[in-house]
Design a protein around this nucleic acid. Structure first.
Length: 482
DNA sequence: TGGGGTTAT
DNA sequence: ATAACCC
């Protein structure tokens, strides 16, 4: 309470009283410690955290845009608005609007099948992601105006940690206004709200903020979407999908177990992916209850301690992972897939196209990539997911030229990429590729080279690689001979 | 399955 | 460099 700033005294007593029993507080303490420990900075925080965090309960919102690519296309061309619309990449309808869904079109449906189902389907090509990416970041930036802690998940989903915002709003309220707090949107399972329960109050305020976010998205960007409000990311994400287009749902703690058991299969839990699902099924685990009651020791043996412990907690609806601000992207990449590429000349042309787009993007970003990677997929009868890659540092003289339109950066970059290509593909032997991708990563802010003590530490590959005791990333990359 | 992304090992 | 996860 000593650290909590002014305004709290009005509600402080009530908050403590309604927060739960001493036992619950002890649990909350333990969880808080676990969370702080996981963040790696327990020491020194102890004295400030313990007395003030009377509740470890967070308020998280998950915002999920409705059929995002289709929405962007309908904004670009309003003629499409009342027609069944699909967004096509190669021979797939990757997403479609709700008009199309009513007529039986599904996400990732084959174009031929979709046309059979729905002959009136209008298709637009969505292989160039530029406009989607730009709109995606506008959404993230809008959400960041509410709270800076926004984590992106793909182009169309964002998590926001509303805990602080909710606390601030509660501090503004008079205690007699507490009983006037209302929910915005749906309450999962139609659960009764208890206005004497501080956890309920906090989640309701979260639902109000979520509604404001969706309003702002619609008014300023013309986009609709769903939102889910809950006490952690897992629950917020799952609950956002309960009422589907353009609606929102809040999950109250008492409905958590009902909610998690309403999932029909463990594969519906985000974090349990293709491989883990296969492994769990082999162990006879298919329902959430199966997983909850399965031997943790055997699970740890089969999946490794890290995955086992995490998914076991997920099966109980527990998820202490923080919302991590995404900030600017860690990498830029462009891919192209095709039926067949079997000559070096053709590969070079495709690589040049990918590179040209990437150089534009990197230039607009402003930061400089220090690593380039080439990724291929070889044709093969079976073998689900076989991609190979080679990467290398970008020579500093090339980095310098990035973003300066004057100098030709294409030629040296293509040379590097073709070396990586020949390192992976024996061009003297027949080959058959179905995908090429170029990725720029290891992005660094421009070196405002005011050489000082910091410079030494900030650019280890340039200034210390040769005499440092540690391996620098430079030494880990493929060594390219000239 | 597309054209992207992330983190962990 | 790969493998898992997410959309």
């Amino acid at each position: 309470a000593a650290v909590r700033s002014g305004g709290m005294e009005k509600l402080g007593v009530e908050l403590e009283e309604k927060g739960g029993s001493d036992e619950e507080d002890d649990e909350a303490w333990a969880m808080e410690l676990a969370d702080v420990g996981a963040a790696g900075s327990l020491q020194g925080v102890h004295d400030q955290v313990l007395p003030t965090q009377n509740s470890s309960s967070r308020v998280i919102v998950h915002v999920d845009l409705d059929c995002f690519y289709a929405q962007v296309e309908m904004i670009s061309n309003p003629e499409l608005k009342d027609k069944p619309l699909g967004v096509q990449q190669k021979y797939l309808v990757v997403t479609c609007n709700y008009e199309a869904r009513k007529l039986g079109v599904k996400k990732l449906m084959n174009v031929r099948v979709a046309k059979e189902k729905c002959p009136q389907l209008v298709l637009v090509n969505g292989e160039d992601l530029t406009r989607y990416r730009e709109m995606s970041y506008k959404v993230t930036e809008l959400l960041e105006e509410f709270s800076p802690v926004v984590e992106r998940l793909g182009f169309d989903e964002n998590f926001v940690d509303l805990t602080e915002m909710v606390d601030k709003r509660l501090q503004q309220l008079q205690s007699d206004e507490l009983s006037a707090v209302t929910v915005s949107g749906h309450v999962y399972n139609n659960q009764s709200i208890n206005l004497h329960d501080i956890l309920h109050i906090r989640l309701l305020v979260g639902s109000q903020i979520a509604a404001e976010m969706r309003e702002a998205m619609y008014n300023r960007l013309g986009l609709t979407g769903c939102a889910g409000v809950a006490s952690n990311k897992l629950l917020a994400k799952l609950v956002s999908g309960i009422f589907k287009p353009n609606q929102q749902t809040v999950l109250l703690p008492e409905s958590c177990q009902h909610f998690i058991h309403s999932l029909n299969h463990i594969k519906e839990i985000p974090g349990i992916g293709y491989k883990t699902t296969k492994c769990l099924e082999a162990l006879g685990i298919s329902s959430v209850h199966d997983l909850q009651t399965f031997s943790s020791k055997i699970l740890e043996k089969e999946l490794g301690i890290s995955v086992a412990q995490r998914i076991l907690k997920l099966s109980f609806g527990e998820d202490n992972s923080p919302v991590i601000p995404s900030g600017p992207p860690q990498s830029f990449s462009e891919e192209d897939s095709f039926k067949k590429c079997s000559s070096e000349v053709e590969a070079k042309k495709r690589i040049e196209e990918l590179l040209a787009s990437l150089l534009n993007r990197v230039c607009r970003d402003g930061r400089k990539p220090h690593t380039v990677r080439l990724i291929i997929r070889r044709y093969s009868s079976e073998k689900h997911y076989g991609r190979e890659s080679r990467q290398c540092p970008i020579p500093s003289h090339v980095i310098q030229k990035l973003g300066t339109g004057n100098y030709d950066v294409m030629t040296p970059m293509v040379d590097i990429l073709m070396k990586l290509f020949r390192n992976m593909v024996n061009v003297k032997m027949p080959f058959h590729l179905t995908l090429l991708s170029v990725c720029f990563c290891n992005l660094k802010a421009l070196n405002t080279a005011k050489k000082g003590p910091m410079d030494y530490y900030l650019t280890p590959s340039l200034s210390t690689a040769s005499h440092s005791g540690k391996r620098s990333f430079k030494m880990k990359d493929t060594h390219m001979e000239d």
